[in-house]
Design a binder for these strands. Structure first.
Lengths: 101, 101
DNA sequence: GAGCTTGTTCGACAATTGTCGAACAACGGT
DNA sequence: ACCGTTGTTCGACAATTGTCGAACAAGCTC
């Protein structure tokens, strides 16, 4: 099985932006940026686990996250270094709910 | 008539990202970043003028552009200063077709 | 005013997307 | 071996979105 964690340089910018352009996914990304790593189950934002799983796949396939399996859980974390290197400023611009004046 | 050019702080980040998450619109934004200002007609990227008009409205309503009417033409330009102030790094991260290694 | 150019608006249509419940799979503990 | 926990996958469905042609509006020029 392929977990589909693509090379970030192979992902179109529009795909990265589209992945971030959803409220639920953006909350997930923000939570991951704070916690560093989180089990899928902890990323509950009022959607069913099916929907949650869907969003996490979108994030993964856009190259935004990596997933590590451990027991029955799966731990997700941001690919921060790579993202900051390829798109400097992008995450910072997006991580704060209310950008500074 | 309301040209619908919202206050940028009133636009959700997801709307800004969604506006940028389309290939045609991203090309438009890049062209505007280079030319500074462009008539709608010059922003032809292989779509009909109806579609072009639609994309320009999305950009405008996401707070990314301003439109100025002159004669039969309408000139569009990026709201670069505001964007850079509210989302520093966002435009830079997105404007280069191939980000630096 | 007639005609051309430039854009916008209006359906319409296909494709994509977010959402869910239900079924399934894998693992751990008792 | 059973059960509960944790996620994924599979339709299905509604809503959104990108696209177009045709009709319309506004302005310029002859």
């Amino acid at each position: 099985m392929e977990p589909h964690e693509p090379d970030l340089t192979a992902v179109p910018v529009t795909a990265v932006l589209a992945a971030l352009a959803d409220d639920v996914r953006l909350q997930m990304v923000r939570a991951l940026a704070e916690s560093g790593e989180a089990a899928c189950g902890t990323l509950d934002f009022g959607v069913s686990k099916a929907t949650r799983s869907h969003h996490l796949r979108v994030l993964r396939e856009a190259g935004l996250t990596r997933t590590r399996a451990a027991g029955t859980s799966r731990y997700v974390r941001l690919r921060r270094d790579e993202l900051d290197r390829l798109y400097p400023g992008l995450l910072d611009a997006v991580l704060t709910p209310r950008p500074p004046a």
